[in-house]
Design a protein around this nucleic acid. Structure first.
Lengths: 176, 176
DNA sequence: TTAGGTGCAAAGAGTTTGCTCGTAT
DNA sequence: ATACGAGCAAACTCTTTGCACCTAA
């Protein structure tokens, strides 16, 4: 049956080829922030007749249509997530690459205010926290995560080739 | 005479070649957030015997030594600034690529708290605002920038080839 | 039928690196 | 003297693109 993103694509009047349907499904089912290679891997598993060029073209198309959002968590590869599953920000575990989402109402207000003060109209923002899981934390603190509304562990990523532009140390690796 | 960064390099026990001295000086005098090509351009103007490979190797070295900090404002090129001219964040003018720095005490407290709540030790953060200069703002608002302590226009960048990973629209161009 | 999508391989952009020669210490 | 740096070009990674062929609408 039709995946959520496939439906959105149709609504946008996109021609739905077999490849796009598969990619749309992979995206719909993703609960993490996969990069193109990972999307390609998952799509290929469902249908071998997909080339990575098509994945690149598709994510670009969907991004231009506002259906996907591109993220850059360092590591040199762009990562994607469906638009509009609520405004949120990311905490990246620098040891595992795991991404945890959190809300940032406070931050939004502040950034809005800062932009205005400097004479700018806020167009977009980037707010990420790179951290390391605290060891032997009295479970209380760890469970505290649940207290932050909207905090969700979005799952794992994959072993990167090389780190680069980003707040991560040069060889801090995403995931693994 | 010896530039600020050159002195720091010496203190770090780095072998100071002619090239490094020039690059150190360019960095010391930079008031913006130049990328490697720009550094190469400025260094070459002072001494033609510098290759871009050396610039890459040098910024990497200085980054590893904690003397420089790498930034990624989208656009696919890493940009650099000397470490420790105070903790600050950046507002990027998406029309011109200009970078304005601002302090974020409030944000820091919040991010620290969020990390702790989620059971993480905050290692580093990324907080950027991408905005567009407001037209015909009653001068008051524009001048407001001066009210934000530490707000500094760090100057211009250069015309990029292509935008990429980042909050900027795919063809939003940094500068010019 | 035909505008537009796909695969493949080549091209690009930014960055790194192997190798040989040069130089700061 | 020698360990380390520099220049040059080739290699790499991620992403885009030209072209011939294919397919959804």
């Amino acid at each position: 049956m039709e995946s959520r993103i496939e439906r959105i694509c149709v609504e946008h009047g996109l021609k739905m080829t077999g490849q796009r349907r598969v990619i749309a499904r992979v995206l719909s089912e993703a609960e993490d922030h996969p990069d193109v290679e990972e999307l390609y891997r998952r799509a290929s598993a469902l249908d071998g007749r997909i080339s990575i060029a098509t994945v690149y073209r598709t994510v670009r198309l969907l991004e231009e249509r506002g259906i996907l959002e591109r993220r850059d968590f360092g590591g040199g590869r762009a990562r994607y997530e469906p638009t509009e599953h609520g405004r949120h920000y990311h905490l990246i575990d620098i040891d595992t690459g795991r991404v945890i989402e959190f809300e940032g109402g406070e931050h939004e207000r502040l950034m809005q205010q800062i932009a205005a003060t400097l004479g700018f109209e806020l167009v977009s923002t980037r707010l990420e926290i790179y951290g390391r899981r605290v060891q032997g934390v009295p479970r209380g603190a760890a469970r505290g995560a649940e207290k932050l509304p909207g905090a969700v562990d979005t799952g794992k990523t994959r072993p990167p080739r090389r780190a680069d532009a980003g707040p991560l140390a040069r060889d801090a690796q995403l995931e693994r």
